[in-house]
Nucleic acid binder design. Structure first.
Lengths: 353, 353
DNA sequence: TTGTAAGCGTTATCAA
DNA sequence: TTGATAACGCTTACAA
């Protein structure tokens, strides 16, 4: 040991604390970990000293010994569809998840895969180096290699978003079918028969799921969804503007449009404002989730609400169950859940004129 | 060792790999770490086997041995002012930071402190358990205990945002003074003399910094900023709406308003639309950073642009310098930087009528 | 160029 | 109730 100063750097470890208290490191460890077989007074002294000196067990040492990190990860891919489920969306989920996990003594970290990195390689790195005990992966592709990898590796994970896979795995997703059904039902009751759907232009899975769901809700009512009414554009303001342009260019213009994303709504409102078309009167619009300030559009947007904090807690709770099952060597349970969303009526949807 | 199955769980370690290759663990380690003293052929075999079996060194083992984790953190406080520098803002910074750090072989994780947790306690936990080698803390309070703690602990960190402190520490912040000067200059040239400032109603530091900067820019031009023209509201759409209400209620109404945040702009536009006041004509508005879709307001918002990816790279680069300095036992350098922002003229600011 | 072994900080087993 | 010690997986100094 040449440079113990630069390495140790004033940070104390269990030996220092034990020496200071004149007891053994084993006792310190047991006291701090709430073991029963420690004298109450001794425990008191240890805890006070730890507090006083700002000591917590080094996580690397712990992890090594225990074979687990006490950490839960959440992987976000920057830019894959960040405009959509932007931060307000993820942050609320993180909030709920963090809150649940910390109440259970687990730590929570978010891994952002850069826009210039390969998501699979990024995830492999996290997994191979054992950075976390379990992870939630988000922004699922239609077929997503990450699933196969994690399944094969037997690493506890939950996919936030459905994906087509031959493997059995746990996932949770927004209830796109329910949203589609409610949106289509609402519009049909208002007399709409020709309804367009604006969806993502990339390979994120929920775009497909949503279009399929809308199509079958329409079919139930004897209506069809021809391909020219499925408008694929980026889930951005300008994508929404572009949707408007395409709608305006149609000779047989739809009387209503359903959006898979609220950022689009902003652009759509702008083009309509530019050409003096009033949402809810001249054309009906149904948006998606309430997060990206859809409630501030005028006229107010008909849209769906989802309690993201609760959703985050669900994720925390269930990833923990998976981790625990693995820890105790039990068979890992498999969860799947569609998260319900509630329609909030606005003024952007009205009867056909 | 009772339950080696449940613990080991198919995950291989350096011993397994070494045994499989019929060489010693030392050689495996050296090969994988790019040491010079390894036979080229041996190295090749090791790397291939690692790839084949999906082996990377266990980070806990590494960290323990090396005394560092190879991890850089970024602490975000959820809900403190998430509406503000919401979505695109942090994500773009993460993108740049992640991109830089991964090119330098460091990993990057984001720690979200829940809205129900104490930021100082949360940070202490991260630091004490040695989860990261260095950290960027954001959303600085006017006086922020986190700074004193990290300084005293000698942990490498950069504060993203200024804060009043007697300690010496590294920080980076947006150039609020520059923004204020450009905004005020722009408005004064257009003939405005009575200018209001809309700022945050919480204790986040930059609100104060910005108001002070505006005040001195106004003073330079012989103008004053009376307290009743400093409108403190939450940095949300409804906060912006409220700013509008307060402006409309004034008997001697300002002819222009400068916002410290663009989310507010959305609410402000709405109330003006409701009462048929046209931004840029009846009243001038200057917004702040371009991230929260300010560019989609009509009329277009005069606002400021900041290359967030570059800013993230700067943070990555400099936190790494701090970590390296500490690792080599050198005196830690101290950085401070004001990040410049560029004014983008829109139609929301015009001459006084 | 390779193997051996110590040690990083912790927890868990076992004996006292 | 406590102390001594092995072991977790890795890197590195040193010997071969």
């Amino acid at each position: 040991m040449t440079n113990e100063d630069s390495k140790r750097n004033f940070l104390l470890n269990i030996h220092d604390l034990a020496k200071h208290l004149n007891i053994s490191i084993g006792t310190v460890s047991r006291a701090l970990n709430g073991r029963a077989d420690v004298n109450a007074k001794t425990r008191q002294r240890v805890i006070e000293a730890a507090q006083k000196f700002g000591y917590s067990p080094n996580q690397s040492g712990r992890s090594l010994r225990q074979g687990s990190t006490g950490l839960v990860g959440f992987m976000v891919i920057i830019n894959r569809d960040r405009e959509t489920r932007g931060e307000a969306f993820f942050m609320s989920i993180f909030d709920g998840m963090q809150s649940y996990l910390s109440s259970r003594g687990l730590d929570f970290v978010v891994h952002f895969c850069g826009s210039d990195e390969d998501p699979v390689a990024y995830l492999r790195r996290i997994a191979e180096r054992r950075l976390v005990d379990g992870i939630v992966i988000s922004q699922m592709y239609r077929t997503d290699k990450r699933i196969d990898y994690l399944v094969q590796r037997k690493m506890p994970f939950i996919a936030f978003g459905r994906s087509e896979s031959s493997k059995i795995f746990s996932w949770m997703d927004l209830d796109f079918e329910g949203v589609a059904e409610k949106a289509i039902n609402h519009l049909c009751l208002l007399g709409h028969r020709r309804i367009a759907i604006a969806t993502a232009s990339n390979d994120i899975n929920y775009g497909y799921v949503f279009v399929d769901a809308c199509r079958s809700s329409l079919a139930k009512r004897g209506l069809s969804l021809p391909d020219e009414l499925v408008l694929q554009e980026p889930l951005t303001e300008s994508g929404g503007y572009r949707v408007g342009e395409r709608l305006l260019a149609m000779e047989n213009r739809p009387t209503a449009v359903v959006l898979v994303d609220n950022t689009m709504a902003i652009g759509l409102y702008h083009i309509f404002q530019d050409v003096k078309i009033i949402p809810g009167k001249d054309i009906s619009i149904v948006g998606f989730d309430a997060s990206p300030n859809g409630e501030f559009l005028r006229p107010s947007l008909t849209q769906f609400e989802v309690p993201l904090g609760q959703l985050g807690r669900w994720l925390g709770e269930h990833i923990m169950l998976l981790i625990e099952a693995k820890g105790t060597g039990k068979k890992m349970p498999v969860f799947s859940k569609l998260w319900p969303m509630k329609m909030i009526l606005g003024d952007s949807s009205g009867p056909t004129s």
